[in-house]
Design a protein around this nucleic acid. Structure first.
Length: 493
DNA sequence: TCACCTTTGAAGACA
DNA sequence: TGTCTTCAAAGGTGA
């Protein structure tokens, strides 16, 4: 079992240096190598921010020594096993703590239909919610929160707006008001800590309409992306995608419990998936039609806020961001609207066939969260390069850190499965085959793939490059020494 | 305008 | 069962 916990405690990537395969008898001979590598790594880190693409081709000999010990596949298996175990425990015991702080997983047994036909929350779900958070903090002092808690006891789903609330130091009442949450779980989001839900937050950022940003965020919206910028507080890493105030935009894990009408809850509080009510309606629709392809009626692709559902996209139609209209004069806007109207005819035809996107896997969630940070650190723009860095950093994560994202991904899949029970990844295969392209098929020859790349061209990795020397470790990590017969050719050499 | 690049993981297809 | 392929995100790049 590879030692995965480097224990470095440094920023991302540092731990990777400490990962070694103790059971392979290489540790001793690597000691001196690691010492040198650590020195080199420190140099790399110190110049990390200043380094740019201009140094991309630099690949010193010492870098070959700084290759990262790959993560063992057995670890992933064990991680999955542990997660499954955790899930079983979670299912069995309602009061088990979430796998990591800050993410109160919602495991409602009858999630598929938490509501009664009259719109009330089912007794099971209601009971579960009350059981799940028996220690809800109602001492915040906010009349709203108290009232919300009171409302939460109401059988009407319109009042059950979520079992928790994130509390942030210095958070304005406005943010809390926007949440309109009924109660809170004892979760404290520190400003310097990325909330584990951040991947889910950014999951729906693209559908955020920045035209009317929340007052507390106004003037702090990226004019290009429309995504609220985190405050550049000296104590807060500017790379975190969301500021504490912006976390008010966090899609609630129970966003599907948000009532459809009657309360201005979750203004800008978006969830990747439609609410349960909407879904239930759509379920009946496509269940009756055996949900072949048009699983979700068009109107279901809109969030309750009118924001298109991020998981339901129209092939070949890029989502236009409304922020593009910001700063334009009226004639330009009219022209744009006119063009949009003309294009809408074509788009409507395409919109008739929305497809539900796949749920994001752990790495995708990690990418969404860390992309901005890498971009800021490395002043890179190309996603391909950024993704390479993220891939390296992903492997540098500790087991616990990765477990967070695996668990998030598991919840994503679970929620996706609940919301779209008839959905299959095959549907998207067909969607793209009909719509457009046949995606280019990459033929990675042995030794051509990432595992066996001669060097890693981007110096802004804070991680050692992949060299040919690292290739054996890749397969070694994947299959282990006891399965060398599964190693690829270069690795077996 | 759109496929490609690049990453990992999940899931479907296929032999 | 094992291997291969596709898709999910992202945005610059080049055809």
């Amino acid at each position: 079992m590879p030692q995965l916990n480097g224990g470095g405690g440094d920023d991302l990537g540092a731990n990777d240096e400490m990962i070694s395969f103790k059971d392979e008898g290489e540790q001793e001979e690597k000691i001196s190598e690691n010492l040198s590598a650590e020195r080199d790594l420190a140099d790399v880190k110190s110049s990390l921010v200043n380094e740019s693409e201009t140094n991309q081709n630099s690949s010193s000999d010492s870098e070959a020594e700084r290759r990262p010990p790959p993560r063992s596949e057995t670890f992933r298996d064990k991680t999955r096993e542990s997660l499954e175990e955790a899930a079983k425990r979670q299912d069995g015991g309602l009061f088990k703590s979430p796998p990591y702080p800050g993410y109160p997983f919602i495991m409602i047994p009858d999630l598929t239909s938490p509501y009664l036909p009259n719109g009330s929350l089912s007794p099971t779900a209601r009971t579960y919610l009350q059981m799940k958070w028996p220690l809800l903090d109602v001492n915040h002092g906010s009349l709203q929160s108290r009232q919300a808690l009171k409302d939460a006891r109401s059988p009407s789903p319109a009042h059950i707006v979520g079992p928790f609330c994130l509390e942030f130091p210095g958070q304005s009442d406005l943010s809390l008001h926007q949440f309109q949450l009924s109660n809170k779980v004892p979760v404290v989001q520190h400003p310097h800590h990325v909330h584990p839900l951040t991947p889910l937050i950014t999951y729906s950022n693209e559908h955020f309409t920045p035209g009317n940003p929340p007052p507390h965020l106004q003037g702090d919206v990226d004019p290009k992306t429309g995504i609220p910028r985190p405050p550049q507080h000296p104590d807060i890493s500017p790379y975190y995608p969301l500021s504490p105030g912006a976390v008010g935009q966090i899609p609630h894990p129970l966003g599907w419990l948000v009532p459809q009408q009657g309360q201005p809850v979750y203004q800008g509080f978006r969830h990747p998936y439609p609410t349960a009510l909407t879904v239930n309606a759509s379920m009946q629709s496509f269940l009756s039609s055996r949900f072949p392809h048009h699983m979700v009626p068009p109107h279901h692709s809109l969030h309750q806020t009118g924001i298109p559902h991020p998981a339901i996209v129209t092939p070949n139609v890029k989502q236009e961001s409304s922020h593009s209209d910001i700063g334009l004069n009226s004639s330009t806007i009219l022209y744009t609207l006119h063009r949009k109207h003309q294009d809408s005819k074509k788009e409507d035809e395409k919109k008739k066939q929305p497809h539900i996107k796949k749920p994001l896997n752990a790495f995708m969630l990690y990418m969404k969260e860390m992309r901005a940070k890498v971009v800021a650190e490395c002043t890179l723009k190309e996603s391909a390069a950024i993704n390479q860095i993220l891939g390296r950093r992903w492997h540098a994560l500790t087991r616990e850190e990765q477990a967070k994202y695996y668990e998030l991904a598991r919840k994503e899949r679970q929620l996706h499965m609940q919301l779209y029970p008839g959905w299959s990844a095959r549907d998207n295969y067909a969607a793209n085959q009909q719509g457009k392209k046949k995606k280019r098929k990459r033929d990675k020859q042995p030794g051509e793939g990432n595992e066996h790349r001669e060097y890693f061209p981007n110096p802004c990795l804070s991680l050692p490059p992949i060299t040919d020397l690292s290739a054996p470790k890749k397969c070694r990590a994947r299959f282990g020494l006891d399965q060398q017969n599964n190693w690829c050719g270069p690795c077996s050499l």
